[in-house]
Write a protein that binds this DNA or RNA. Structure first.
Lengths: 342, 342
DNA sequence: TTGAAAGCGCTAACAT
DNA sequence: ATGTTAGCGCTTTCAA
C-alpha cells in the first residue's frame, strides 16, 4: 500500500516508479493501449488507484491538440435562456470529459473580444454562441475561426450550424390546443413586429387561422397584454373565444385585463402563452397553459453537434428548428367531449 | 511582411525563426523580461504581431502550474441567481486572463462529482461554489481540495470564505423605506420558516418593528401572498399601512389580493418586495419597490477573493454579508414631506 | 512485453 | 545581449 502524496498532485512518474515500470508502460497500461502484460497492467492500475493518480489534462491536451474544452459565449445578461441552454450543452459534454467556459458578454464588444481571445489562447476545441433573439448578429465575428462554431438560439451564417426553436411549430401547437378546446375564433396578441420570433409565430397563426387576421403586435410586456384587451373590448362587440399570446408575460397581462372585466378564463375564453417561463406561467390565475421552447434540448443538440464537429464527423448545416412542446395548465378550456371525439 | 500561417496556430518557434533569434530571446522579448536589445525586442514584437502570434496557454500553464482557469459549480437549474453571479465573477477575472468553467449540477451528486473531477483534471486554480439558498450543503465535499474554494450565495465551513447577501440589511432598508413613507404599522409576509433567509429577514423585521410581531411565514409564491391578504382581511378590522414581503412573487400576490378588494397601492397601503426579480417586479401594477441583493457584486467579491487566494494573499475568512440596495418604483407612498424631513 | 527517447509549446537556468 | 539546455506531464514512435 503506497502512501498518497497530498501536497502535490501525483504524476504518471509517481505511478511508474511505485509500480516499478517505465513511463511508457504505465501510460499504456492506464490507457489500455499497446501490448502490456495483464499482470503488470493490474498492478499499475491498482497503484494508480491507490495513490489517486489522475492524468494532467493540460499535458495531455498539449500533446493531443484537443483541450476537451469549449467556450460558450452569450449575449444574455439575465440567464433566462442561457442557463438552461448551457446546462443542456454541459450535460451531453461532461460524459465525454469536456468542460465549458461560460462567457457572458452583455452585448459588450470589448468584453466579447477579450473573452474570445482568452478562449482561443486556452485552445478551446470549439465555440457555441447563444443569444436571446434570433435576428441579431453576435457582437463578435466568429466566422473566421479555425475551430468549429455552433449557434444555439441564434442564427449563424448559412454554412454554419444553428439550433433554434421552431416558432411556427410552437404556434401550431398553441392553436391546435385552442381549437381542440372548441375555440372558433382565435386572436393573436404578440410582441414587436421587429422581432423575427414574433413574425414567425404570427405567420404560422395566419396560415392556420385566417390569412387576413389582424395580429396585434406590441411589446413583450404584461402591460401590453393588458392594453390589448382594453383595445379589443373597446373595438368589438363580441370577444374571440381564444387568445394566443406571443409570450407568457403578455398572456399574464391579458389574463389580468380579462379578470378586470369580469371575464372568466377558461370558462368564457381560453388563453395560451408562449415560453413556459415558470415564474410567470405557474403563478398566473389560473395557471397558464403555454408553449415550452425546450431550451435544454437546444443545448443538447448544440453540444452533440459540437462533439461531432470536433471529431470531424458531418453535421447538418444551416438552421435546425427544434419542436416545441405544450404544457397544459388551466387557462384553456377542457372540453369533456374533445377527448372522446379525437 | 511575413505571411500569416492559417492552418496551424503559430508558435513561438515561428516567431523566433522569422525574427532570426533564439526561442528564449523571443520569449524574453515578448514577456518583457531579461536583457533584450531594444531593437531586437521591437522586431520580435512586430513580427509576432504580424503573424498573429498568441502564446499557447496550455503550454504556459503546464510550466507555471497556474491554468488561469477556475470552476464555478452551481446548484441552480434555473439561472436566476447563477448568471448574474457568474458573470460578476468573470467580469473581474477576465481582465486577469482567467476564464471560468460553469458546471450546473441541478443538485445531482453524480453530475457534481463528474464535473468536479473534470475541473480538477484540468488543473483549475480554484473553485467557486454557488447555490440558491444559504442553508443547504453542497452536493459534494469541497473541503479537502488542495486548491482554494470560495462560496458565493452559499455558506461554506467557517474556515472558508463566503459571500452572501445581508438579509438583515435588506430588511432594514425595506422597513426604513416604508417608515419614511409614513407607515406606522408594518406587516411581514414571507416564505417558509425553514429557510434561513426568511428567518434572517424576519428577525431583522422583529428587531426593528415589534419584537412580538407575528410574522406570516408561508411559501415563496404569489398564491401565498394572495392567501395571506385574505387571512389578514378576515382576521382584523384595520389593515396595516405597510407590508414588507419576503419576495417579489409574494409581493405580487399581495398586490393582486389588495386590488381584488379595491384597496389601492400605494395610496391606502404601501408594499415592498425583496429580490428585484425584474420579470416580476417591473410588471406588477403598480411596479414594485423592492430590495436588490446585488448578485453581481457578490460575484465580483467572490472573483476578487479567488484572485487573491490564488496569489496566496490573505482574504477574509468566514461569511461576509454584502449590503443590499433599494430599488424605488411605485408601490410605496411618496410622502412629499418626507424628503425635507430627512 | 517493456523501455528509451523525442516532442507538444513554452519558460527559466545557465552558459556564452 | 543572446543562445543552449532542461523540463513541465504526458503520449508515442521505435528499439531492445
Amino acid at each position: 500500500m503506497v502512501k498518497p502524496i497530498l501536497h502535490r498532485r501525483c504524476t504518471l512518474r509517481d505511478v511508474a516508479k511505485a509500480a516499478d515500470v517505465s513511463l511508457s508502460t504505465a501510460s499504456n497500461a492506464l490507457n489500455g493501449v499497446g501490448r502490456v502484460n495483464a499482470e503488470t497492467r493490474e498492478r499499475v492500475l491498482r497503484i494508480a488507484q491507490e495513490i489517486g493518480f489522475r492524468p494532467n489534462a493540460l499535458a495531455r491536451s498539449l500533446l493531443s491538440r484537443r483541450s476537451l474544452t469549449i467556450g460558450i459565449i452569450t449575449d444574455d445578461t439575465y440567464g433566462r435562456l442561457t442557463l438552461p441552454i448551457s446546462s443542456g450543452v454541459s450535460e451531453v459534454l461532461v460524459d465525454h470529459g469536456v468542460s465549458a467556459f461560460l462567457c457572458a458578454t452583455s452585448g459588450d464588444k470589448r468584453l466579447a473580444e477579450l473573452h474570445l481571445q482568452a478562449l482561443l489562447d486556452k485552445q478551446v476545441d470549439g465555440i457555441i454562441f447563444t443569444a436571446t433573439r434570433l435576428d441579431v448578429d453576435p457582437p463578435i465575428d466568429l466566422t473566421a475561426l479555425n475551430i468549429p462554431v455552433v449557434y444555439a438560439f441564434a442564427a449563424g451564417p448559412s454554412h454554419s450550424t444553428s439550433f433554434v426553436p421552431d416558432d411556427a411549430h410552437g404556434a401550431m401547437l398553441a392553436i391546435a390546443c385552442l381549437e381542440a378546446a372548441g375555440c372558433r375564433e382565435i386572436l393573436h396578441i404578440t410582441g414587436p413586429e421587429g422581432w423575427l420570433a414574433a413574425r414567425n409565430r404570427a405567420a404560422a397563426y395566419r396560415d392556420r387561422c385566417r390569412p387576413a387576421s389582424p395580429v396585434m403586435f406590441g411589446e413583450w410586456s404584461e402591460e401590453w397584454g393588458h392594453a390589448a384587451i382594453e383595445q379589443v373590448l373597446a373595438a368589438r362587440e363580441k370577444l374571440p373565444d381564444g387568445i394566443f399570446c406571443g409570450s407568457d408575460e403578455i398572456a399574464r397581462g391579458v389574463l389580468d385585463g380579462l379578470r378586470d372585466h369580469g371575464i372568466s378564463v377558461p370558462d368564457d375564453i381560453s388563453v395560451i402563452g408562449f415560453d413556459n417561463w415558470e415564474v410567470v406561467s405557474r403563478q398566473t390565475r389560473p395557471p397558464l397553459t403555454t408553449i415550452d421552447m425546450e431550451l435544454k434540448e437546444i443545448g443538447h443538440r448544440a453540444g452533440l453537434a459540437m462533439l461531432r464537429l470536433t471529431r470531424n464527423e458531418p453535421v447538418d448545416k444551416g438552421i435546425t428548428r427544434l419542436p416545441c412542446s405544450l404544457v397544459r395548465r388551466e387557462s384553456v378550456a377542457k372540453r369533456p367531449g374533445a377527448e372522446q371525439r379525437r
